[in-house]
């Protein structure tokens, strides 16, 4: 058992339309690396060059916003659920 990652619709073209993906990783950053290994192109949609979460991407671990935890260093354990939710905004 690893970490279950919920993939939002706009990113499912990178996961063969899968709604969720199981990966391993001891923290959020490691999960992103594992995601990238399985589904190349995903990581750059989530973080910038410095590895920081992009402005309009929200990441939740078991329903908690990682920005209220340790961000990309938030520790994960087997069975955790990580949800990626794009903030839908803008359209000026």
């Amino acid at each position: 058992m690893g970490i279950k990652v919920l993939i939002p619709t706009p990113l499912r073209n990178l996961t063969n339309e899968k709604e969720s993906v199981e990966v391993n990783g001891a923290n959020v950053a490691e999960v992103f690396d594992s995601l990238e290994a399985q589904h190349p192109g995903l990581k750059e949609r989530l973080v910038d060059d410095a590895g920081e979460l992009r402005r309009f991407v929200n990441v939740y671990v078991n329903q908690e916003d990682v920005r209220f935890k340790e961000g990309k260093d938030t520790v994960l354990s087997d069975g955790d659920e990580l949800s990626i939710v794009p903030a839908i905004a803008g359209g000026r």
Binding site: L6, P8, T9, E19, N58, Y60, Q63, D65, S83, V85, P86, I88, A89, G91
Partner: peptide, 26 residues
């Protein structure tokens, strides 16, 4: 509200519903 909003983003991915302020937000 922020939890409600996150939940609705996930629900909008699961059911074919028009969420006024999520998938129909523009």
């Amino acid at each position: 509200y922020d939890k409600v909003n996150r939940l609705c983003s996930e629900v909008a991915d699961k059911y074919n519903w028009a969420f006024a302020n999520v998938n129909i937000r523009p």
